[in-house]
Nucleic acid binder design. Sequence first.
DNA 1: GTTAGCACTCCATTTATTCGAGTGCTAAGT
DNA 2: ACTTAGCACTCGAATAAATGGAGTGCTAAC
Lengths: 346, 346
Amino acid sequence: MLSHRQRLILHAIVDDYVRSAEPVGSRTLSKHHDIQFSAATIRNEMADLEELGYLDQPHTSAGRVPSQKGYRFYVDNLMDEPSVDRKTVATLRSLFEQKLSEMERLIQQTAQVVSHITQQTSVVLGPRTHQERVRKIEMIPIAPSRAVVILVTDTGHVQDRQVQLSDDVAGEDIASLVKLLNDKLVGVPISRLRSRLHRVASAELSTLLASYEDALAFLDELSEASQRSHQVYIGGAANILAQPEFRDVDKVRPLFELFERTEELGNLLPNAERGSIGVRIGSENVALPLQDCAVIGAEYRIGNEVVGRLGVIGPTRMDYARIVKVLDYAARALSKLLTERNDFGG
Amino acid sequence: MLSHRQRLILHAIVDDYVRSAEPVGSRTLSKHHDIQFSAATIRNEMADLEELGYLDQPHTSAGRVPSQKGYRFYVDNLMDEPSVDRKTVATLRSLFEQKLSEMERLIQQTAQVVSHITQQTSVVLGPRTHQERVRKIEMIPIAPSRAVVILVTDTGHVQDRQVQLSDDVAGEDIASLVKLLNDKLVGVPISRLRSRLHRVASAELSTLLASYEDALAFLDELSEASQRSHQVYIGGAANILAQPEFRDVDKVRPLFELFERTEELGNLLPNAERGSIGVRIGSENVALPLQDCAVIGAEYRIGNEVVGRLGVIGPTRMDYARIVKVLDYAARALSKLLTERNDFGG
DNA sequence: GTTAGCACTCCATTTATTCGAGTGCTAAGT
DNA sequence: ACTTAGCACTCGAATAAATGGAGTGCTAAC
């Protein structure tokens, strides 16, 4: 167990290093407000802390730097509640108070605002709920043998997909098909749509459409449209280039390559641990390009169901306290907004 | 006017430099297959070419590098038709031959494939046609005072937007509103939707919806939904980090910042000049972050109307011939695909 | 247990040195 | 008149040496 003084010093080192990005020495610390011990004393404690694995020394005669274990201890035990400054709150609030726009834009803006406030790269996963149910299915012909199928859920999400029809499908056929689909499928949860679709409609479909393959293809298109994976938005990717630890292009490249594999990225946001926020530091991340990074993740909900995630990616030297706070705020606001928006009760 | 030999040398220098990223010297060139003159002769010609502004010399005793003017001359006069290799064609073809998916994915994949093939960063603007017409308008309630408005165009594009209704709108009101909108607006070109909407429907709307403000807001939402700007997709942004001219993070950052301002980016793809391809080299680009870049742009069509653009961004040292060819192919394929897809005649 | 003092370490930065590819010029060759 | 070989010269890149300073560890005194 760390002594009070050790904690104090570790705390100070993390804070200082996060700010300066330079290894911090005993002399520097002895000038720190909260610390009245002499540099020599601090040196002794530092040596102990290093022995215990909380600090690293880049080389023999350099200052100390928090190790991964040190950051972890900081996040778990030392980090104090920062009072998020007024300006930050104001920015976030104005984002969420503005006119409700469609989902996509909201998510995108969240990513941008969070990245701007934190000066880091942010990732936001679009909402996806398994309890979402089919609200309505529409099918609109746009060419002799093409139509758009539109699926609307009870939370107001709209997904569309073009399908190929056999040449001789008449307007009435489509109308009755749409009616059939709506009769059988409205209220069905998205998660069960696929199986239900095949059970319920394949027989009727094949009589309506010319060939059986067409029918199957159609069903697949439809269920695929409903299962599209999380939308992923990245904000402030360029911010990471401002970090001194990423001044080397070779360090950054793998990260940017990761940013482009959005599906993969979606799985890398940490799950909530303490409260609703999760923090993964250095090798706690599974992805190789993130070994030198810290990732902070939060989740947002509709009602009580977790429907999406948002997070921040940056170097392990990161202002954890502040960013946790910002993410927490953003996630709460988003949850509130989405919940109200879909609140039937009023 | 450049002599034949000067052209030959300029051509060789561009090719060599594009490949090696190193200034090319007279001795190196004299070993080049197509060049039988001695190094000294080449030096003389080089001096002339530099005098004329086609070559730059990084410093007194370095090899020569094509200047912006040199690249321009190369693109306009020297560039030979490269036979795009089989593999490239195969990759592109397989992209476009696959099962037709929804627009968004097609565009996104185009961006990815083009960037992968060219090893540069690609930008694709989603299609947008002014002659697109309203095919159908739907409005589906999802909560007591909320509804999704869906607008489908004759090319099969679907746009949606949530709107706030006054609390006491009944189901029949919505039904009649939708009928009204469809009666009056089906067939109207998207470009005229906004004005038409206000002229035709505002009166009726205000009686249907509780307040006049609600009605106006509704109209705005609707017309705004129809005017969403180009979708912009970026592929292979990380590729630019592999270029030696962007090994310095400070050089890259402005570029990545630009990549995030997608609306702005949309305007920076050059218009077609020769054939259907446009090339902008160095300072020919207006955007500051692109001063050291070359941007190649192509356009794609639905029928005869240009509906979107795609392009490649990279350092001025770029394999113009090949990339022009790839873009040309991709644009043609995309045009063909989109045109057929919306072809009513068959 | 804490602190001042001091010798020592090691990196970052600067300065010097070397190395070599490439040029321009001159003079000879075709 | 054009082309080419030869040669001295230039200048940056890469390497090596020198300097400076922040920081440590240790010891001894408080």
